[in-house]
Design a protein around this nucleic acid. Structure first.
Length: 463
RNA sequence: GUCCCCAUCGUCUAGAGGCCUAGGACACCUCCCUUUCACGGAGGCGACCGGGGUUCGAAUCCCCGUGGGGACGCCA
């Protein structure tokens, strides 16, 4: 049987890190088994779905490189199918009209809560063999409810959590079509998963409680039941649940913040899944290794520091061409115009082993293309009156030196000897003058790239 | 409240009854490298939630407790 998995987000917001991981695992499972990965947009909540959100999800998946074999399918465009199925269920007696008003339902829920009962529909419009149903009120447009079995258990082997069993007594007759006729989530999922031939439903574990209902409907329809794999959630850095108002950000924010997609992917892959002691691996390797047996059933806390470490690793690996292209854009955002000299590629090569993010890289090299702002603390510490003299001597030497790291180094050494100083005594003030701060790569390397004129200008600018 | 799920270093995790004196990674600390800061290298600190069973033997299986999370919408 061909594996078919799907990612089915609702377009009510951006693609966040949890959704991205769900998509990644679902995608990887299909890839691993040579199957198909389907994208389905669950937009039946018309009030909250937006085209912008659809685009944001598409953008996020594109950035991560999660391509799909089919879709995107939009549930709002599949109404005919749902309605047909609804009619069939009404005809079969597996669904029925319910004329309860929202107020009535609200009152019911209220009283159940007060009695410490689990709030649920009491089945007052559920047809039974010898039951006399009330007369339908004229002013209440009916909803359609699924006639859920009342006895027995729904049991499935969850591919992540193992056997899960829920008693039908815990379930009520859920609404599968609203009063306006539009079908609801649990019903659409069932129809779609069935019609699209989904073999493994890989989704967040907030859906565990929906699963028995969906299985019951699938059975009522005579459909094949897919396998289910429920992924635990991802918590924020502080161990708190991620939500719109607490820490949840779009995956595109990671792009903004200077993360490489391969770093985010690698990090996400390792969050809740493992392959022995392996930490760093390519997407391709991940697809070969991926399985559902090694997914942790418990929630995982996001850790930006580990992401940073991975990102640093992937920046070191990134091609210079890629980095030049990317960093040019980031510098432009900082209002830094990249000139011909020094060559951006050379500057990047000098810095790319020292940073955790692309933004850090851009920020750190900005001084090559614009005058540095001298850090006050650094200036106070290193730019003392006596060093002024040393810098002057150095300037004279630099004017004549062959502009290569080796010779520049020699020149510095000469001054070091002349004034009987330690090397850093000359290098540090130079650093501050040239870069604005007290940390940089090898100072002679920096000078080579900066160019003789600029170096001398920056030194003499000190007054 | 009811139902469901979860529980190994601070964090991500390895672990399928003996290989566990519990392994790896991030972070942290120390040292080395060094021209500052990084990078890199070598070490170090650091965990099986508690209690009962089962077993010759339990991080691993079972039960109870505790803690955390999720669900209980004409949202998805």
């Amino acid at each position: 049987m061909i594996v078919r998995t799907r990612f089915a987000p609702s377009p009510t917001g951006f693609l966040h890190i949890g959704g991205a991981r769900t998509a990644l695992f679902s995608w990887a499972y299909a890839k691993k088994h040579g199957g198909d990965f389907i994208l389905r947009i669950e937009d039946t909540d018309v009030a909250r779905s937006t085209p912008e959100a659809v685009q944001a999800i598409l953008d996020g998946m594109h950035w991560l490189g999660l391509d799909y074999n089919e879709g995107p399918f939009y549930q709002m465009q599949r109404m005919d199918t749902y309605k047909k199925t609804l009619q069939k269920m009404l005809a079969d007696g597996t669904a029925y009209y319910c004329y309860c008003s929202k107020e009535e339902l609200e009152a019911l829920r209220e009283s159940q809560m007060q009695q410490n009962l689990k709030p649920r529909y009491d089945g007052r419009w559920r047809p039974e063999a010898d039951k006399v149903l009330p007369t339908p009120p004229q002013d209440v447009p009916p909803v359609i409810r699924f006639k859920n079995p009342q006895t027995g258990n729904v049991v499935w082997q969850d591919l992540v959590k193992g056997e899960i069993s829920i008693a039908n007594q815990e379930l009520d007759d859920l609404i599968i079509a609203r009063a306006d006729g539009t079908p609801t989530y649990n019903f659409c999922v069932v129809v779609d998963d069935w019609e699209m031939g989904i073999t493994q439903v890989i989704r967040g574990d907030d859906h565990v409680n929906n699963t028995p209902r969906q299985i019951n409907m699938l059975m009522a329809l005579g459909a094949t039941i897919p396998q289910y794999a429920h992924l635990s959630m991802i918590l924020g850095n502080d161990g708190q649940k991620l939500s719109k108002r607490h820490g949840a950000v779009s995956v595109m924010q990671y792009d903004e913040d200077g993360y490489l997609p391969e770093a985010v992917l690698n990090y996400l892959a390792r969050l809740g899944w493992s392959h022995g002691d392996d930490e760093v691996f390519s997407l391709q390797q991940f697809c070969e290794w991926f399985d559902l047996d090694h997914i942790t059933p418990s929630a995982a806390q996001f850790n930006t520091e580990k992401l940073n470490w991975l990102n640093a690793h992937y920046i070191k690996l990134a091609s210079t061409d890629y980095l030049v292209n990317d960093i040019t854009k980031r510098l432009a955002k900082l209002n830094v115009v990249v000139s011909e000299q020094p060559q951006l590629s050379a500057v990047i090569d000098l810095y790319k082993e020292r940073v955790h993010t692309l933004n850090e890289l851009a920020t750190n090299i900005a001084y090559f293309y614009q005058k540095p702002v001298i850090d006050e603390a650094a200036a106070e510490k290193h730019l003392t009156a006596e060093t002024k003299l040393v810098m002057d001597s150095l300037t004279s030497l630099l004017k004549a030196v062959d502009w290569q790291a080796e010779h520049i180094h020699h020149a510095i050494n000469e001054v070091v000897t002349q004034y009987q100083l330690k090397f850093p005594k000359v290098a540090m003030p130079l650093r501050v003058l040239l870069t604005g701060i007290a940390q940089s790569p090898s100072i002679d390397q920096v000078m080579v790239l900066l160019g003789r004129d600029e170096v001398i200008a920056r030194i003499s600018h000190w007054n």
